[in-house]
Amino acid sequence: MNSRIIGEQVVRAWAVAKKDIRIYYYKPPVLISGILMPVFLYLAFLMGSKPVPMSFLISGLLGMTLFFTSTAVSPVVFPWEGQAKTLERLVSCPIAPEAIILGDMIASSVFGIAVTVVALIIGLMLGASVLNWVVLICAILLGALCFSAIGILLSVPPTAIPQNIMLLSTLVKFPLIFISGIFMPVDQLPPLGQTLALISPLTYFTDVVRISYTGGGSFPIGFDLGMLLAFTVILILASVVLHKKTMPLRI
């Protein structure tokens, strides 16, 4: 593929992203649940019996918000489109599978970022001040892409029944929350927990966000961002390779 074709495919991926946002994200129930989710997370943690400093709490809340919203819809887009035969339309058009996947990822990332901004604003209103905005913005952008890629990867099994993917998605997502240093810093986890934390991209996101609020974390900033980038690249490559194999089975 030459650079002109790559440029064209990026533009077409953006068209897919806009279509996804219109069809799957820009809907009252999705938007309302997107706004309510961070509100409820704050309420749940602030009303807990054990007082936790806001600067510590917010990194976990931002982590959960970005992780859950970026992986909320992306796993079911492929099954839905396979079921509605609209995937067949896309595949018969001059758009590469990579561009379709990129488009789905962009839409999911935009939604994840938008809801995380709501959580960020609530945090600011509650007095959580950011020490390093650049690191925080980089972390949110990279985290959104990384978690969206997880969502896309979860949709690889060629089923046309979205519920099957939702079940798989839940089975993968919830354990990650508990091993990623959201409820306590990674270095305070038991040895097995510390080892498992290393294989979760959410660990590095939570850690780098914690650094941007408190100045201190379990890993250096560069390492956290590098690991997020590495996970993003690996997850995207895996998604592309596996979706290319299973896409014909959906049609």
Partner: peptide
């Protein structure tokens, strides 16, 4: 319009 974008 979506088709227009997909076909460039």
């Amino acid at each position: 319009m979506f088709m227009g974008e997909i076909f460039g």
